[in-house]
Design a protein around this nucleic acid. Structure first.
Length: 289
DNA sequence: ACATGGGGGTCAGTTACCTCA
DNA sequence: AGTGAGGTAACTGACCCCCAT
């Protein structure tokens, strides 16, 4: 039992009307009414900062000897909970009504609502945390899945590029329409998702007349194939200073300048075989179409 | 119009008690 | 019986808003 004692000052409406006094002393009620309202209603309550000797002198002691709790009764809490569900803020009228119904001091009702809001907020924070964590976990799983897709698509790009190089090495690239058409057809026959991507028909613009076997050459670069949420593929490449045209960086040995591979007025660059890349913004994103 | 002070409210943090394992 | 953790009633101090002066 805490040895401090209380002074109840009902002349103040603020919480500061209850004072803790150090050391020994007596319980003092100014205004004749305890904040705890133990003398009201069916469930009489008593202040708990009292000594046994003091309690012996109290009229209520014999009656309430068994009741050592200061907690609100189940009925009181139920009514308060129902009221809280209706509105978690407490207007003065409602506070008075509740206090009368429950046999409590308005101050007690206000304190209960205050504590209840704090508990609700704590629970709400826990719920928000759980929800955010679930979202984070889902995003993380999605991210991992995308990374795997990325790796898979990179591998496809490598194999396609190799096939392309072989095709160019065997057949050469004459630049005539028949050969271009053959190349496009073969490209379309590839069963990979990349090959299945719609090829943009550019007619004679598809391959420049300069495109020869050296159209694809080895180089070091920094391009990376990306796949966005809509399924479009992108190369995030590095434009190499000092070189004319555009580059899509490291397609594992494949690189094609705008000049070599062909270009059109719309900023698109064409790779041999019916594929082309398109400058997209200032971040060196290249759309693989 | 603006400053000021009182009253009343909320909130975050804290204290002390009660209950239970 | 003693103890520590968790729940809860109540308090504190800071801050805000409203309103009368």
């Amino acid at each position: 039992m805490d040895s401090r004692h209380l002074i109840f000052d009902s002349s103040s409406s603020h919480a500061g009307h209850m004072f803790f006094l150090g050391g020994s002393g007596s319980q003092i009620f100014r205004g004749g009414r305890s904040v705890l309202g133990f003398d009201e209603g069916a469930n009489k309550r008593r202040p708990f900062f009292t000594t046994a000797d003091e309690l012996l002198e109290e009229e209520y002691y014999d009656e309430q000897h068994s009741e050592k709790k200061r907690r609100l009764t189940t009925e009181q809490v139920q009514l308060l909970e129902r009221s809280f569900e209706t509105e978690n803020k407490l207007e003065p009228d409602r506070k008075s009504d509740l206090a009368k119904k429950l046999g409590l001091q308005p101050r007690q009702v206000a304190v209960w609502f205050q504590n209840r809001r704090a508990r609700w907020k704590t629970k709400q924070l826990e719920r928000d945390f759980d929800r955010l964590k679930s979202s984070y976990d889902a995003l993380l799983a999605d991210h991992d899945s995308l990374l795997k897709d990325n790796d898979r698509l990179r591998s496809q790009v490598v194999s396609l590029t190799e096939m392309l190089q072989k095709e160019l090495a065997v057949g050469g690239l004459k630049g005539d329409d028949d050969q271009k058409a053959t190349l496009v057809t073969e490209e379309e026959q590839l069963s990979s998702p990349l090959a299945a991507a719609p090829t943009q028909q550019r007619g004679d613009d598809r391959l420049s007349s300069k495109s020869k076997g050296n159209a694809v050459e080895d180089t070091e670069g920094a391009a990376a194939l990306q796949v966005d949420s809509s399924g479009d593929s992108y190369f995030q490449g590095s434009l190499i200073e000092g070189n004319a045209g555009c580059y899509i960086g490291a397609i594992e040995g494949g690189i094609c300048s705008e000049e070599d591979a062909g270009s059109s007025d719309d900023g698109c660059s064409y790779l041999p075989g019916g594929m082309f890349v398109e400058a997209s913004g200032e971040d060196n994103w290249w759309v693989w179409s």
